[in-house]
Design a protein around this nucleic acid. Structure first.
Length: 499
RNA sequence: GAGGACGUAGCUCAGUCGGUAGAGCAUCGGACUUUUAAUCCGUUGGUCGAGGGUUCAAGUCCCUCCGUCCUCACCA
C-alpha cells in the first residue's frame, strides 16, 4: 500500500468511527444524474427534491460550504452543501475524496452563475476509493493504463461507456432481427477436437479427466451445419472465436463472430440478410445511411454493389482470374512470389494486393475461385467458381458467406486436397470425419453467413482500432506496479509463462 | 516476425552541451458559506522502466532486456 492509499485507508477508519459504513449499502429510489439534470429550473432554486448517487469527480471546499461534482454513466452534476445544511453529517465531507461514491439528497436548482446544482441537505457515504485517482483535468492519458485498467478509462470518459452500450445495442438488434426472421440461437462447443471451419492457427488446451488435447474453436461453422442436418432450418450463433495470430489495430486473439445458416437458401439470400442486419444495426444507433469512417464517406443505402471476383481483378490488376499466364506475369511484376504455388493461390494473393485495399464499399465481392473455398458449393454452370461472397467496407472484410457445400463425397475430397504454396494451417481444408458423416445424413441446400461483430461495431461507432470495441483486449501480463497498486516487499508478481 | 518511437513523482508533462531531479494537478496542514481547472499561505512526494558499460561525473552517451504505441508482414 503506498502513501496515498494509507491516507485514504486511515480515513476509512475515521468514517467507521462516525458510525458510517465506508463500504455503503443498498441505496433505493435513486434517479440517474442525467434525469436529475432535466428537472433543473431556468434559474434559482426549486422545491423539487431529488435523490441520486455518483462518483465524486471534483471538490471545491470553501470553509463551511462545499461544492463537489458527482458523475454516473448518464451525466455529471454539481452538488452544493454546507455545515448548516448537513448538521451532524458535516464531518463526512472532510473524509470524502475524489472518486469516492456518495449519495445525495436535496433540491434541484441553479446557482447564480447558472450551473445546474443539487442543493443537498443529505450526503450518504457509499464507497471509499482507496486507490489514488489520476489527474482530475487531463485524466490518465497513457494508452497502456487505459487498456490495462479499462474501468479508469470508463470513469473518466463517458463516451467509452457509451461505445460499449452501442455494442450491446447492435448485438441485441441482430438477435431481434434474426429471431424475428425465425432463426434459433444455439451455442456450439468452444472446445473442439478438430478446429475447423476457417483457416487459422488455433489455441491448444488440455482436458485432464479425458486426457486429451482440445482446441479453442476458430469458427462455429461445422457444428452449426450439423444443426441444419438435424432439421434446425434457421440457426445462428454469436460466437466468441479464438485465433492464435498477431495482434494489431484490427485483430484481437479472441473476437466475436456472428454465423447463421438457412436451409434452402443460398448466397444471394445471405446478401439480403447481411444488408438487413447492418441497416438494422445502424438504425438502432440512430445513424443515417451515409456515414463517415475516418476520412472515408460510406453510403449504406441498399442494395449494395455486387461485383464478381473476376470482374474486380480485371479492373484493378488488368487480368482475368482464369488467365493463368497473365496472372503469374502480373503477380511477378508486383513482387509476389509465385514459384511452386498453385495458380489460384497466386490469384488470391494478386487479388489481395491489388483489389482489397481499393474497395471502399460497401461492396459484395462474389464468385470466388473454387479451390480457395473447400466448404462452398460450386456454380453448376462453372465448377471453377464457388458461390461465395465477401463484404468489404472501407478496406475491411466485414462478412463472408457461401452457398454451403452439402455433398459429402466432394467435401471429403476437398478436405484431403491441400493447395501447393499454401501451408496447412493457412488452409480451411482439415479432415473432420465426424462432419463428413453428418453430411452423409443429408444436409439441406443452404446459405451460410459470417459477420465480424467487432469490425461492424468499429464501423458503426467510428472506432479505428479493435481495442476500442473489445472491452478488455488481451495485454501481455505485467506485475501490478502502476498506479501505486504495488504491494511493497511481498510483490505478488504475475507468473511468467514458460518459454 | 522486421523496422521505428516512447518509458522521469499517484496523474499530466518539462529537463538545454553529460555537471545539485523540476512544474501543474493530486496528497497533507491552515484560512474562507455561491465555487466551477475555486482562491490564498504552507507541506510532502523520485530505484528517472530494469540491468550493465563509458566517464572525475549519466535522466542525458553506448549495449542488453522488459513494456506500450506506430508502420510492415500474417490474419478476420
Amino acid at each position: 500500500m503506498n502513501k496515498f492509499e494509507q491516507v485514504r485507508a486511515e480515513k476509512l477508519e475515521k468514517i467507521a468511527a462516525l458510525g458510517i459504513d465506508p463500504w455503503g449499502s443498498r441505496f433505493d429510489d435513486r434517479q440517474p444524474i442525467g434525469q436529475v439534470r432535466e428537472l433543473a429550473p431556468e434559474a434559482g432554486e426549486s422545491t423539487t427534491r431529488v435523490r441520486t448517487a455518483g462518483r465524486v469527480m471534483s471538490k471545491r471546499d470553501s470553509g463551511k460550504a462545499c461544492f463537489f461534482d458527482i458523475a454516473d454513466h448518464t451525466g455529471r452534476i454539481q452538488v452544493l452543501t454546507g455545515k448548516k445544511q448537513l448538521g451532524d453529517a458535516w464531518p463526512i465531507l472532510d473524509l470524502t475524496d475524489l472518486w469516492d461514491l456518495v449519495g445525495v439528497e436535496g433540491t434541484i436548482g441553479r446557482t447564480r452563475t447558472g450551473e445546474v446544482t443539487i442543493f443537498a441537505d443529505k450526503v450518504i457515504f457509499l464507497t471509499k476509493t482507496i486507490a489514488h485517482p489520476p489527474d482530475k483535468h487531463h485524466g490518465a492519458q497513457d494508452v497502456e493504463i487505459l487498456l490495462r485498467h479499462r474501468y479508469i478509462d470508463m470513469i473518466q470518459s463517458p463516451e467509452v461507456v457509451r461505445r460499449f452500450q452501442d455494442r450491446s445495442k447492435i448485438l441485441s438488434t441482430i438477435r431481434q432481427y434474426l429471431t424475428g426472421q425465425g432463426f434459433t440461437e444455439v451455442e456450439t462447443p468452444t472446445m473442439q477436437a478438430i478446429p475447423g471451419g476457417a483457416a487459422a492457427r488455433p489455441f491448444i488446451t488440455h482436458h485432464n479427466a479425458l486426457d486429451i488435447d482440445l482446441y479453442l474453436r476458430i469458427a462455429p461453422e461445422l457444428y452449426l451445419k450439423r444443426c441444419l442436418v438435424g432439421g434446425m432450418e434457421k440457426v445462428f450463433e454469436i460466437a466468441r472465436v479464438f485465433r492464435n495470430e498477431g495482434i494489431d489495430a484490427t485483430h484481437n486473439p479472441e473476437f466475436t463472430m456472428m454465423e447463421l445458416y438457412e436451409a434452402y437458401g443460398d448466397y444471394n439470400r445471405m446478401m439480403e440478410i447481411t444488408e438487413g442486419i447492418v441497416v438494422g444495426a445502424m438504425k438502432s444507433l440512430g445513424l443515417p445511411m451515409q456515414i463517415k469512417y475516418g476520412e472515408t464517406d460510406l453510403d449504406f443505402t441498399p442494395p449494395w454493389r455486387r461485383a464478381t471476383y473476376d470482374e474486380l481483378l480485371r479492373e484493378h490488376a488488368g487480368v482475368g482470374m482464369d488467365d493463368t499466364d497473365g496472372v503469374f506475369a502480373e503477380a511477378k511484376k508486383r513482387g509476389i512470389e509465385t514459384l511452386g504455388k498453385d495458380a489460384d493461390v497466386v490469384v488470391s494473393e494478386l487479388f489481395e494486393a491489388t483489389v482489397e485495399d481499393a474497395l471502399v464499399g460497401p461492396i459484395f465481392v462474389i464468385d470466388y475461385p473454387a479451390t480457395l473455398c473447400p466448404l462452398t458449393k460450386r456454380k453448376t454452370t462453372n465448377p471453377r467458381v464457388a458461390e461465395r461472397f465477401e463484404l468489404f467496407v472501407a478496406g475491411m472484410e466485414l462478412a463472408n458467406a457461401y452457398t454451403e457445400l452439402n455433398d459429402p463425397i466432394l467435401q471429403e475430397e476437398l478436405f484431403t486436397k491441400q493447395l501447393s504454396g499454401q501451408k496447412e494451417e493457412d488452409s480451411m481444408a482439415k479432415m473432420d470425419r465426424e462432419f463428413i458423416l453428418a453430411l452423409k445424413h443429408g444436409m439441406p441446400p443452404a446459405g451460410g453467413l459470417g459477420i465480424g461483430i467487432d469490425r461492424l461495431v468499429m464501423l458503426l461507432t467510428g472506432s479505428t482500432t479493435i481495442r476500442d470495441v473489445i472491452i478488455f483486449p488481451l495485454m501481455r501480463p505485467k506485475p501490478v506496479g502502476a498506479l501505486g497498486l504495488d504491494e511493497e516487499g511481498e510483490g505478488e508478481e504475475t507468473p511468467t509463462p514458460s518459454e
